[in-house]
Design a protein around this nucleic acid. Structure first.
Lengths: 193, 193
DNA sequence: TATAATATATTACGATCATCATATTATAAA
DNA sequence: TTTATAATATGATGATCGTAATATATTATA
């Protein structure tokens, strides 16, 4: 009676591809600068089918943010597990404030790229963003073995340094922002009460 | 022979009003979300005359950034001069990471609001932005009596804390981001080498 | 193979954008 | 008061956006 015209799970897979495409595009070009047709093309589709997957662009923004931040936490966890010599939090700080992470925004943390725009987004999007940021701060605090208050200051330093390092034109200033951010972040972990 | 139909300095005054209108609008709503007609309306004009003042929107963005950051440095200088009891840098940190500054973006520092978008702007805009950020870091370093490297870490912490505090939905987390940012920024000034 | 149902593509709509061409207004000088 | 011209307004253009309606393509089942 009931026929299933496409393979089971097909739509979910396509939907995930759209979210992945959006997450990558948003990190590179912001939210407002990325159009629905562009996102759909990135997922190998045309724009028409978009609204059979999402109610509107805002809903996709929320899902893409959740996906991107979860993805970054998982990546940082992997980075922390890789090296055993320095404290794991040092490895994560070094990665987060590396030239590689600065220069490859499409694969990197979404927070420095989008926090400004998120402040002006819908409550739905901010709700998701808040929850994921809480998870990120918990992850960082746990890794550094500090409380959440200190952890939020640590992560703020990391985000601020990366944000500014990406915004400037001068390679030397950008390098200074990264390295001084690294140094202070590490000292913050052990020095401050 | 040569007649001057409008009062001397009239056009410059109007041009400045456009830049002020843009600076305020960009801080509140970002660059891409603010249209030329909207900016012109904010200056009491219609959109048509825009291109007799500026070659394009990008040029206005650069000028508005320069204006806004200079304006903020001047404001912070005033804040520093107001109170004499605590070290001036503490007064500035307290102001920068206050709920008032977080909640009144249209009058506040442009850097947390726009750094993400600036990363994806033209070289012309990034050039101006870089120069003004250098001035800001010099101002902060001088006020805190620390070197520019440490000053850039300090300012990164301030920017990161304010950016994240503005992006989240939860008042408690936002307050934590502000207060822990304040605390560690102050400790950074005196503690770290 | 034919059918039914669903996923995707094509096309269209109204809005808004940056930009530009042209018309109108305002005012200093004659 | 008239005139010349700079400053501003009006209106238009082509592009692109988010969104929706409709047509086509796809494939598990009968």
């Amino acid at each position: 009676m009931i026929t299933i015209p496409y393979p089971k799970g097909h739509k979910i897979k396509v939907r995930n591809k759209i979210v992945e495409s959006a997450a990558q595009a948003f990190r590179t070009n912001g939210i407002q600068d990325v159009s629905v047709p562009f996102i759909m093309k990135g997922a190998g589709l045309t724009h028409g089918g978009f609204y059979s997957h999402f109610n509107n662009k805002e809903q996709l923004v929320a899902e893409a943010c959740r996906y991107a931040i979860s993805d970054t936490i998982a990546l940082l966890q992997k980075v922390a597990d890789e090296e055993n010599h320095p404290p794991p939090i040092h490895t994560v700080i070094d990665y987060y404030l590396s030239p590689y992470h600065r220069d490859n925004t499409e694969m990197g943390c979404i927070l420095p790229a989008l926090s400004g725009e998120i402040s002006r987004s819908s409550e739905e999007v901010r709700q998701v963003y808040t929850h994921e940021l809480e998870r990120m701060i918990a992850f960082i605090s746990n890794l550094a073995e500090i409380d959440a208050s200190k952890g939020s200051a640590l992560f703020s330093t990391m985000v601020g340094s990366l944000t500014l390092a990406r915004s400037v034109n001068d390679p030397e200033l950008s390098a200074t922002l990264l390295s001084s951010g690294k140094q202070y972040a590490k000292e913050l972990v052990k020095t401050l009460t």
